[in-house]
Amino acid sequence: MTKIPKSVADLKPGEKGTVCCFNDEVMSLKFLEMGCLPGSEVELSHKAPFGDPICIRVGGYALSMRLKEAATIMLID
């Protein structure tokens, strides 16, 4: 069985991961300038009511994004 690659959208609150790459070029530019880089450690802090958007911790600060956007940040498993 092939493993489905995991993205930031799959994290549970409190769960950590390391960014591997992005699957959307335009979106990735915004993440890069916000300091969310390949190799950065991210942690899901909390989700908004209704589970979307979410807030992650990266580079020492809190970054919120919609689930759709979070799904473009792939994690190393």
Partner: peptide, 11 residues
């Protein structure tokens, strides 16, 4: 055009 909601939540 796509909207971003990639936004810093300040302390």
């Amino acid at each position: 055009e796509r909207g971003y909601f990639i936004m810093e939540l300040p302390t």
